[in-house]
Simulated scan of single mutants.
Amino acid sequence: MTVSHDPANPLVVVVGITGLQGGSVARALIDSDKPYRIRGLTRDASKPAAQTFAAQGVQIVSVSLTTDNVGNVRKAFEGADIVFAVTNFNEHMDKQREIDEGKMMVTTAKDVGVKLFIWSALESLSAPSGGKYSSVGFFEAKHEITEYAKSSKIPLAVVPAGYYASNVFEASYALKKQADGSYVFGLPVPASTQVPVIDVAYDYGLYVRAAIENPALGAGSEVRSGTLISFGEIVAQLSKVSGKKITYVQMDRETFIEATGMPKYGPMLSDMFEAFAAHGYYRGKEITSETMLARKPRSWADFLDATQVQNFFV
């Protein structure tokens, strides 16, 4: 399908359209057989990704989604039937800022009367551990925003992103080249620890589209993304596809933190992985069935097949 400009069709506002999640959402809606008007929000409308969407008929709006810019955020949300919202903790590493900006988007969306607010949430890692794993700010911030959205009574669908497949390559603290040319992939958890891996750019939008289009979902639903796989199997498949000898090693907490080279954030990363092992990424909640999606999402093996993995081994 192409992007609609018919005012009779629903307007979907996509926050962060030039990012991995927002871009995936926009592409999934453009691919749908249902017509949507799409308004993409970004701080920089000159980005190539923004221009690509604009050429496809997406209305691109340049706006900063900060608490001191509520008036312009409201203008960007006005007329929306559906809002997809996401926050980016990595931009500022400020838990309270993320909470404040997330709550602002919830309140603004409710004020303009959206029919469905889709939130890219995460579970609390602190709650099931009795506060033991409390340092993972972006999980706790997104959970607090979820609870705020629920209490606001806005029509809400929660669509958490699974564990990014790209994280495996970007986790330089985990994948280490050895003197003999082999590699070690080390985390502070057993190899059997599972995470719901997702190719975010390719597949995340499928789950958001399901939240919009599948009559069994919509407001009140949680649409959990990804395909469960253990870190041990992640490493085994990566070794097979890359042709590199890669060994999974379970580190103790102190060794892992030292290996990250980040004294400030190493404990947070260790807490995150330890919480995954103890309580699960989704705290035992089931991943949404692939049968509810418009197509089958990529598995980790599929992601590797579609990725030039050799480029990551230099």
Rank of each mutant, 00 (worst) to 15 (best):
V208T: 06
F185M: 06
P190Q: 07
L228P: 11
P188M: 12
I154Q: 00
V197Q: 08
A179I: 13
Y164K: 01
V200L: 14
A191T: 13
V184P: 07
S230K: 04
A216V: 13
G205E: 10
A219G: 11
G232Y: 08
A201S: 14
S172A: 14
S166Q: 15
V158A: 09
G220S: 04
P188T: 13
Y163I: 00
V200W: 02
G232H: 03
S182I: 10
V195G: 03
S182C: 15
V159D: 01
V197C: 01
A191C: 07
G220P: 07
A191I: 08
Y202F: 15
S151G: 15
I212W: 06
S152L: 08
L217C: 08
L228G: 04
S192P: 05
T227A: 04
G205H: 04
S172Y: 13
P215S: 10
N167M: 11
D180Q: 03
R224H: 09
I154Y: 02
I198W: 10
P196V: 05
S151N: 14
T193N: 02
G226Q: 05
G186I: 01
Y164Q: 03
V168R: 03
L228E: 06
A216L: 12
A211L: 02
A174Y: 03
Y204T: 01
L175R: 14
G186P: 02
G218I: 05
P196K: 08
